[in-house]
Design a protein around this nucleic acid. Structure first.
Lengths: 206, 206
DNA sequence: GAAAAACTGAACTGGTTGGTTTAGTTTAGA
DNA sequence: TCTAAACTAAACCAACCAGTTCAGTTTTTC
């Protein structure tokens, strides 16, 4: 699949991707010029066009790379799901919350959302390889907790949807829009109350 | 406050705002040119600059207008909160879900999210006058249901945060990225399960 | 150490950008 | 009907855009 590149070529390519991701996230897709990317990467513009067909292609490469990275980091989710229901849910919630609030993840998310009308194929790849895959891991964890008798989750996919999005509340939303965090709720209170609600709805009766 | 405008002037101004909102939502902020807005509004470019100082100012005016509109439409929220807990929550959920999935609301949301790093003041206005005010209405409704003994909600603000965001799950997310809706969950199953979870966590004991 | 591949910097297209200005036309209000 | 405000179309500006080309340099590979 992946073409074999000479060391120099690979390094340049990575530098271009890093620089482009930074520019796109800071300035937005349309407002980023290829000259800016070239300058930021310390590379000539001709080199960029030797590696990528055009601006769109470069954008796509950034998203694909991010998805590959993310796939690895998500392994911790299933591992976190140990112990009784409350302990497991809290551990999962912490991993997810850290992911959601990571500045680089959020910055790329902003760009993908913004460009999704013009780049529907990239939006699809991003969603399927990123959020959707992450949610599947969570659903697997909930299903496992159900099998272990820690929780009662007849529809893990639906429960996952609610759980994950409870965590993307006020705290996430303010960060997404760049507002300073509110006093309440905090990430911690959101995690605690989300877990409490989940236990009330999906906990073992009694 | 609002300057008195001659009929023609007011009509032109509205046409410009309509056209600009359409262009910004379709093309994105940076990719929209003032010439496009002028052509789309059927107005000369000079007229745009007679009404708005520059592109940023025009963007700000669009957001302010949207916030004013939204403030009225949100009145239905408190009205919906009647009957027993489940009935009231379901009614609120439906109003919110319709709002979240409205294409024009989502399109503007995409642009505001995308531009928030470059327009932090507009992002703040949008959030405070839009989502935040909406959530306050929901919180008032939950507090009222608590007072009526229909629910037990010691912290209505926190409960609102979870409830509102449970509704912005898979269905909302896919629509935001322009993907076709999944078979499951649907808007209806999301509403039903969100209400069920809310009742489990905040319902009257017994 | 020579051939091949990768990179550079700069110039160059053809087009667009936000914003201004001009000279002339349409409309509103008294 | 007459004046003042609002509008138009078009030209204009300096800057910037994606993408290409090219002669010359550096690095890799065998």
């Amino acid at each position: 699949m992946t073409k074999v590149l000479s060391p120099r070529s690979a390094a340049k390519r990575a530098a271009i991707l890093d620089a482009a991701q930074g520019c796109f996230c800071e300035q937005g897709y349309a407002a980023t010029s290829m000259d800016m990317v070239a300058a930021s990467a310390g590379v000539s513009k001709a080199t960029i066009y030797a590696h990528f067909a055009n601006k769109d292609d470069l954008f796509g490469a950034i998203i694909c790379r991010r998805c590959d990275d993310q796939a690895e980091g998500l392994g911790g989710l299933v591992l976190a799901a140990k112990g009784d229901g409350g302990t497991a849910l809290t551990a999962i919630a912490r991993v997810l919350m850290d992911l959601f609030l990571a500045p680089e993840v959020m910055a790329l998310y902003r760009v993908v959302v913004a460009e999704s009308p013009r780049h529907p194929d990239l939006a699809r790849i991003y969603y399927e390889q990123g959020p959707w895959r992450g949610k599947q891991r969570v659903a697997e964890a909930l299903a496992a907790l159900d099998r272990q008798g820690q929780l009662v989750v007849p529809d893990p996919w639906q429960a996952t949807d609610l759980f994950v999005n409870m965590l993307r509340g006020e705290v996430f939303h303010r960060a997404l829009l760049g507002l300073e965090p509110a006093e309440r709720p905090t990430a911690e209170t959101t995690i605690a109350e989300s877990v409490r609600v989940m236990l009330a709805a999906y906990g073992r009766p009694g």
